[in-house]
Amino acid sequence: MAENSTHPTHSTNPTAPVNPTHPTEEPTPTVVVDGVHITYKVNGARTGRGSATSALSRIVSRKAAPGVREVHAVKGVSFAAYRGEAIGLIGSNGSGKSTLLKAVAGLLPTARGKIYTRGQPSLLGVNAALMSDLTGERNVILGGLAMGMTRAQIRDRYDDIVDFSGINEKGDFISLPMRTYSSGMGARLRFSIAAAKSHDVLLIDEALSTGDARFRRRSRERIDELRREAGTVFLVSHSNSTITESCDRAIWLEAGRLRMDGPAKEVVAAYEEFTRAGGRAAR
């Protein structure tokens, strides 16, 4: 492999990342991924839960469950992300993008290699903390607390969150239980809560596709804002246009391996060429 040739177009690329520090200084890394492998076990891959007799004979014979399979999702990926960058992760389904994102967030262990971070990277999303039986109002507070905000911070942001979600545009919905919301309203409120907190390193997994066109535009603006406040943003998306619009750098994973890392436009162009040539569906 020609390891020393540099890419000819990077200097003229208009989407090249804006480096807040002086160009001759070493930029500040926020996430360093060093030779990371991630494997996970899948339970019941073949037999589901299995019949009672097979489970019993397994216990008696002390064999491992036959359905447990190991999946090697990420295979030796290395890169460094710097402050001020917005990095898109692209690749076909099952290429390990979301798995890598979870590992950067510290929610999945690495089998080999290490991930170093500045501060605590956070996934954008509080869906799991919200309870559909509670009112939108109480969910704003619960979600904020779950993300680690203080009660005072939530009080300060409360009106912004509700206004941003647009929940109250058609009546006083915020004081109704969330289970009475339409799916679009619920998604909007969830995004608004999740986007209320600024993070050192923000990880976004397909969050831009919720709500109507107006809300999508607003949420993209909010992502840009978060990006300015955050050190670094990672975005997983299957929409190539989202990547080129929101990110200045892209990392292309294919079958768990890092295939290309560079300015978003170049990487997306190469990826599009690959999907056309290879005939593999990219969504």
Binding site: N4, H7, P17, L258, R259, D261, A270, F274
Partner: peptide, 27 residues
């Protein structure tokens, strides 16, 4: 700075021309 240059680590027939930068000592 890896962000400034494209780096391709696997080369297959469909891959763009490889233009890697050696990964710095990340640790």
């Amino acid at each position: 700075r890896p962000g400034k240059r494209a780096r391709v680590t696997t080369a297959t027939s469909t891959a763009p021309p490889p233009s890697p930068a050696p990964p710095p000592d990340l640790a």
